[in-house]
Design a binder for these strands. Structure first.
Lengths: 187, 187
DNA sequence: CCTACTCTGTAGCTATCGCTACAGATTTGT
DNA sequence: ACAAATCTGTAGCGATAGCTACAGAGTAGG
């Protein structure tokens, strides 16, 4: 429930803001949205609640910022595979990014499941990310499959990697990269 | 935190117990474990807290029962594909079961992500379910693929269906059954 | 140095959390 | 019919949730 609306204009030691975001991301990835309290975040970030509320108007706005920032850096890192790039490189690169941004991706998953009537902004951001993921697969698959099958294959591949990511995160001996290579060999 | 330990022996209108389990399952599927309060469950089940705590010693024990009961009925419904059964039928049957037990499966997913240092009993039950799922795939794939590839293909297939299930639950126009058929055509 | 703005600590608000004591209602075995 | 066992309602416990008022420290520009 945002009461005051204010443009955040951080200054000097505004790495505080970044530390809050980091703490929030890590904690929500492990405990879920409802399971992560403001107090926990503050303790992890080494500040107290009033500082947090200076940067973010509410818990919801804080996590909107987590998604926003995470989406931005993730999308920057995982750009569409260049035409020149070898397929092998694209696979290695993207699976590296997945583990590097695992915390953020877990946050996304948690929020997708633990939907709890969040603001439409959340939903919109997630839909955009999922659409981008589909695009990435379409670009990768385009040269090697019939146009009629493209969409369905992209959906299938994205689903597979999502599932493999979850298995990996759950601690099973599953490698996203390995699954990804297997899958591409099939197509 | 279970203080008293007692064997539950329900009697007359012990459909109360079932109503509590139903409410808990539905709510945790939508809001996560931490996001579902005892009060919410009681309101949904049409009882009050002291009744709930007569049947279950704690919130954790309640959700352990949700998992336990869900796992049992789910495993009964989705038995291993018979040798005689046509592959098509097995696929149709299992994907029907997936949507029929969607709430329970969401609970599982939520608990896997929102791990929050739960009792080992949770973890054990989930590992069993995931192992069973792998077995199901191995049985289905055995007649149509090299033994050397069996394990890896089973892992891949399970991952795909997990991912497709999530997409479907998120509200995307993805059909688990359709994805499943596509996948089997590839193999 | 002074004023304005940016950030942080203290202290505490109301609401709800998980949970319980306990009396009473209901059902069961004998 | 009577005692024992099974359930349910009232009322409230201590702890923590999200959040805020407010005083004051730190910093920047003039």
């Amino acid at each position: 429930m945002a009461t005051r609306s204010r443009a955040v204009r951080p200054r000097a030691n505004s790495d505080t803001r970044a530390r809050i975001l980091d703490a929030a991301r890590a904690l929500v990835a492990r405990h879920g949205y409802a399971g992560t309290s403001i107090t926990m975040i503050c303790r992890a970030a080494g500040i107290n609640a009033s500082s947090l509320y200076w940067f973010f108007a509410s818990k919801e706005e804080l996590f909107l910022a987590v998604i926003e920032e995470g989406a931005q850096t993730f999308l920057e890192a995982v750009s569409a595979p260049r035409d020149g790039t070898a397929r092998e490189d694209a696979v290695a690169s993207v699976s590296r990014q997945l583990t590097e941004h695992a915390l953020f991706l877990r946050v996304l998953l948690v929020m997708m499941l633990e939907a709890r009537e969040l603001s439409p902004a959340f939903r919109a951001r997630m839909e955009e990310l999922r659409a981008r993921s589909l695009d990435w697969w379409r670009a990768l698959l385009a040269p090697m499959c019939a146009p009629a099958d493209l969409d369905e294959f992209a959906v299938l591949c994205r689903a597979t990697i999502n599932g493999a990511f979850i298995a990996e995160q759950f601690g099973e001996p599953v490698s996203v990269e390995r699954v990804m290579r297997r899958l591409l060999k099939l197509l």
